[in-house]
Design a protein around this nucleic acid. Structure first.
Length: 208
DNA sequence: TCATTAACACGGG
DNA sequence: CCCGTGTTAATGA
């Protein structure tokens, strides 16, 4: 069974699945590959089949901020409208781990939208999901102090990796949350004293 | 009060 | 030696 079928056979009608199989180009990329950058134009929309993509916002002066992750079975809806309107990307997308991505051309994307109700549903659902993720991201920023932001960051990572042991440095967390490493180190130390995590070099074990 | 910046020591690879 | 980590002191919002 193909990756496409695994994720979408229950969701898409057979005709759409077949078009996906023949028309969407599958690419395999290792971790840390830039899929799309801010200001860039793109001619396809990525559909994540395995692995995960990290989507972040960036500012030249004030650094970057993690928005959300795209896990397997998800699509980057922002890029869809972005290339439809011939606009520039507002976000940056980097593979978080080795991933497989199906590239759907903008022509197929729009054709399927009127042709297949299941495709339409999928796209609208994706929008809904992304929008909700954005709301959580905003809530985190507005209402949570740094302790809670770090905790929810760690929990997201654990869920994504399906592993309580995270290979990550304090500086990487600081970059994702757009703060300084001093703060991360201090709060992580505090979380360790509260028996919520265990700290090692290049590694954090989440005990929640 | 809490974040940021700079600076320093420690230690493992 | 280099890098990640833990901490402090000064400064700012």
């Amino acid at each position: 069974m193909s990756l496409l079928q695994q994720h979408f056979s229950a969701l898409f009608e057979p005709a759409l699945l077949e078009e996906l199989e023949t028309k969407a180009a599958l690419i395999s990329v290792e971790a840390g590959v830039l899929i799309m950058d801010i200001g860039q134009q793109i001619r396809f929309t990525p559909l994540v089949l395995s692995g995960a993509i990290k989507v972040s916002r960036e500012d030249a002066d004030r650094g970057e901020l993690l928005l959300y992750y795209l896990a397997a079975g998800n699509m980057c809806t922002l890029s869809a409208t972005c290339c439809m309107g011939d606009k520039h990307s507002e976000i940056r997308a980097v593979t978080e781990m080795p991933s497989t991505i199906a590239k759907v051309t903008i022509e197929d994307f729009t054709a399927w939208f009127s042709k297949y109700p299941s495709w339409r549903n999928f796209i609208l659902n994706s929008y809904d999901l992304r929008l909700k993720e954005m709301l959580t991201a905003i809530d985190n920023l507005a209402f949570n102090n740094m302790d809670r932001r770090i905790l929810s960051y760690l929990k997201d990572k654990v869920a994504l990796n399906a592993d309580r042991i995270l290979t990550i440095t304090h500086q990487q967390i600081a970059t994702d949350l757009n703060t300084s490493r001093v703060v991360i180190s201090r709060i992580l130390k505090k979380l360790e004293q509260e028996d919520k995590i265990v700290l090692l070099r290049n590694e954090i074990r989440v005990l929640l």
